[in-house]
Design a binder for these strands. Structure first.
Length: 159
DNA sequence: GCCAACGTTGGC
DNA sequence: GCCAACGTTGGC
C-alpha cells in the first residue's frame, strides 16, 4: 500500500538559509542538513518522503512568516555534515556506520505572492491548531492537508 | 538585544 | 531516573 502524501513546515533563519537561497541552488534543490534535535531527526529519518509538501518558514526575524513552498525529492539519509570536523554541525558521536543525524533533499516550489505571517496564522481560526503555535522550538513540524491548502491559498499560489 | 520556553547534559 | 544547570531557539 502506498502511503499518502504528507505535509511539513521547515523553519530556517533567512540570514542562514533563505527561500531565495534555495531558489538559486542548481535545480532549486538543497540538502536540509544540520538539524540537531531528536524529534525533528525522527521526522526526517522516518516520515518525510519524496513528494511530500514543505512550507518554508522564515524564523527569528521581525516578521516571521511562511514565504514559499517546496517539495521533498529525497527521503531521509545520513547527514554527512555530522561527520565533518570542519562543519559547524559536526558531532563527534556520529559515525558513518552508526549515524545519529539525518537529512532530506528539497526542491523549491513557488515563492508566495504574499507572505503568510505568524501573526496572521495566530489570528486565523482554522490555523489555530497548528504545531507552530504550540511547539515553538521544533524546526521540522507536521502540517495537516487542510493547513497546507489554507496557507498556500493565503500565499496566493498553487504549489 | 532581551528573555521565556524548552531541549539537553550530567551529577547524584 | 530525577532534576538543576546550561545552552539554544525564536518571538518580541
Amino acid at each position: 500500500m502506498k502511503s499518502s502524501r504528507k505535509y511539513w513546515l521547515f523553519k530556517s533563519e533567512p540570514s542562514c538559509f533563505s527561500f531565495s537561497d534555495l531558489q538559486q541552488r542548481p535545480e532549486g534543490t538543497e540538502p536540509w542538513d544540520g538539524v540537531r534535535n531528536y524529534q525533528a531527526r525522527n521526522f526526517l529519518r522516518d516520515e518525510v518522503q519524496p513528494g511530500d509538501g514543505v512550507l518554508f518558514y522564515h524564523s527569528n526575524i521581525a516578521r516571521p512568516a511562511v514565504v514559499g513552498s517546496a517539495v521533498v525529492v529525497r527521503g531521509g539519509y545520513p547527514d554527512l555534515t555530522a561527520l565533518d570536523p570542519e562543519s559547524d554541525a559536526f558531532d563527534a558521536r556520529s559515525t558513518a556506520d552508526s549515524p545519529i543525524w539525518y537529512r532530506v533533499d528539497i526542491r523549491c516550489g513557488n515563492q508566495f505572492v504574499r507572505q503568510v505571517t505568524l501573526e496572521e496564522i495566530k489570528r486565523h481560526p482554522l490555523l489555530a491548531g497548528m504545531e507552530l503555535l504550540r511547539r515553538s522550538r521544533l524546526s521540522i513540524q507536521p502540517v495537516t492537508r487542510e493547513e497546507w491548502e489554507i496557507i498556500l491559498r493565503l500565499g496566493g499560489v498553487g504549489e
